[in-house]
Each structure stands twice: as C-alpha cells, then as structure tokens.
Design a protein around this nucleic acid. Structure first.
Lengths: 189, 189
DNA sequence: AATGAGTACTCATGTTGATGACTAGGGTTG
DNA sequence: CAACCCTAGTCATCAACATGAGTACTCATT
C-alpha cells in the first residue's frame, strides 16, 4: 500500500491534477515510484473519499475541466505514520537481469542488442534527471541548496535516480563488452 | 510473467528442489529476482505441467523426500524466446524513497533511523555478494574468469547486485548527513 | 520431556499492479 | 477536411505478487 503514499508525497510539491500526476509518474520523472494513469485516478478517488486529499474543480475553456488536488492535514498525518513504520526492503526485479543470468545458454546477439538499448535509455534518464536537478537547485550550489533549500525531498530522490541510472548504464556497457569478447574468441556450439 | 523465466534461469545452475530454490530467492542471494517460497512451488508446478522443467523424486531418510528439477529442452527454448523479446524497463519502487520525497514535511528522526538501517543491510549484502563472487571465480582473476569461465551469467548479475547495493549505501549515508545537518541548523516548526 | 528450529511442501485467500477499451471536445498538420 | 494528437478522465477485468495457516517428520537444545 505504498502507491497512496507515493501520491501523497508527490502532491506535497503543490496542487496537481490527476492528469499532471499521471504524466509525472508515467514518464518516470517521478524517480521514486512508478504507476499507470489509471492507478493514479483510482487512488486519488480513494484518497479523497478518505479525506487524505481534497480536490477543487478548475473550469477551463477550450479544454476539459480538471480537478486539482492537495494533501489535507489528515493526509499529512498519514504520511507521518507511514514514515515512522518500517520500510520493506527494496528488491531488484529486472527482466534484463534474468536474461543475463541465462546468458551462457541463450543467444547473446539479442541480449547485447537489449543491453545496448537499455544503456541508451539509462543515459537519457541521466540527462533528464541532471537537468531536473539543476532546475531544482536554481543558481545555488548543491551544497548550499541541500543545507538551506526548503524542498529538498525531490532533490534527494532525484540524486538517487541519477546514481541508479549511472550504475545501470555502466553495468550494461561492461556486460556488453564481456559478452562481445566471448562471442569473438570462442564460437558457441 | 517473468517469475517463470527467473525460475528457469536459476535452474540452469543445476538441479534444485523447490525448497533450495526458495532459499536462494528468499534471502535475495538470487540477486536478479525475488520471490516467496509459495510462489516458487506454484510456479514449479505450472512449469512442470507445461513441460518446461522436469522433476525427479529423491528419496531421503531422516528427512522428507524432495523433488529435484531441471530445465528441459522446451524450457530452454522458452528462455530463448523470452530473451529475444523486448524487456520492460526496470523501475525503482522503494518505500524509503517515498519517505525521503516527503522529508521536508515529516519527522526526520524516524527517517534517519530507517536510512541507517538500510545502509547496514546494504553493506551486509555487499559483503555477501562479494564472497559469492570470489567463490564463483575461484582462484582466477575477474578478467580471466569473465573471458574463459563457462558460467558467467550469475557472476554478471551478482556484479550488478554489488554495484546497486554500494550505490544504495552511499546514497543513504549522504542523505543521512544532509538531514542531520538540517536538523541541527534550523529547528523545524 | 517439551520447545524450538530445520526440511519440504500444500492450500486458500487477499492485495496490488497492469491492461485494454471507451468518451469527448479542441487543436494541429498534411 | 480527415486523421491524428493532446487534455482529462472513467470502467472493467486480468495477471502478478504477497500472506497466513497448516502438515509432517527429524534433530538439537533447554
């Protein structure tokens, strides 16, 4: 039941519509969780019913009306409780890792192609997170921002996103090199 | 539907019983996936029904009999198909990140405690993976092993496990430092 | 002599997350 | 001017993952 808390945490940045929220979660810019639009709409409905968020209708012309949500005091209390409770350990669960685990017994050409693509995706995310970080910190240095900024949560999670994707990319590159070298030196039966 | 493939990939290391498999997946030594024992037993049953794995009964005295499973040719073909198909991108999904995202608005003392614990767990995993790596490579150097070893899949995934946990630990340490410093300098309202 | 831990599983149920299909108006572009 | 994309959602359904409880026998500990 962490999606609800992820939504609450995301809404701390200010009022958002379900659609805006979905954009953030979908692209994975929300580097601390991931969810489909439909899940978010459903969760917002539940959260509103329980009084943890409140929405207000914003009438728009030339496009559909939307509902902007913000976290209520009860929602903040819920986040507080959640934070105090033990976190369940985070596990890696990655299709690509499964494939690499089986690398000795399957065709490596397809695998190398996928590793290459993954490395590119990772690089794109590094760039994206990098620009997000510099936007968050403005003209301050990282040190200064982290000491005196007033909303460092997103910055810290983004830092982890960058580190994760760098590790991801480097590992892909390394693995590609290993697999390619083996393909050349000894042709598999 | 990647659990089935994770099981297949794990069974490439040799015959395993459901229980042994469960041990590997449960502790997270299986650094490429994670699952509960019950899921694995269920999956093994399905896989056997579909002919992707085959089991043989091993009669034991002084402890319950067990069934050892191995991957069939059909199972290997299935792994091949899986490897050729596109991988879905891997997302970070971590309770702790959600909490850090909300760090500006909740009690940081509890958060710091959890980050500390997470850092310790990460360090323990680094050590575990480290010894696993050296066991896998035996007396060879990493370079040599990756070039000429005959089962490098587990080694490569383990390398990623180490990198992931190191990043994890470092980020926790950094985040703790940031939060602690802010707690001292300006008391939150 | 009872308690607990380890091996080796099974069954049932519940919670989460993922997917596809659909509505509906406005703007853009070929 | 038709086709397509963007905003802003809803509804229904399915697959995947997680959890609790239970069986049964053995060995070591207290």
């Amino acid at each position: 039941m962490a999606l609800r808390h992820a939504v609450l945490a995301a809404l701390l940045d200010g009022e958002l519509s379900g659609y805006q929220l979905a954009k953030a979660f979908d692209v994975g810019v929300a580097n601390f969780w991931y969810a489909q639009p439909q899940q978010l709409y459903a969760e917002l409905t539940r959260l509103e019913k329980e009084g943890l968020v409140a929405g207000r209708e914003v009438v728009q012309e030339s496009r559909p009306n939307k509902r902007l949500f913000h976290v209520t005091d009860a929602g903040l209390a819920e986040l507080e409780t959640f934070t105090a409770a033990a976190s369940k350990p985070a596990f890696v669960r990655d299709d690509l890792l499964v494939k690499v685990q089986a690398a000795d017994r399957v065709d490596t050409a397809a695998l190398v192609a996928q590793l290459t693509e993954r490395a590119q995706v990772a690089q794109a995310k590094i760039d994206l997170f990098g620009s997000l970080l510099s936007r968050l910190r403005g003209d301050r240095t990282e040190e200064d921002f982290l000491r005196h900024g007033d909303r460092i949560g997103p910055y810290l999670t983004c830092l982890r996103g960058v580190a994760f994707e760098q590790e991801n990319r480097d590992w892909c590159v390394r693995t590609i090199a290993v697999l390619e070298e083996r393909r050349q030196s000894h042709v598999r039966p």
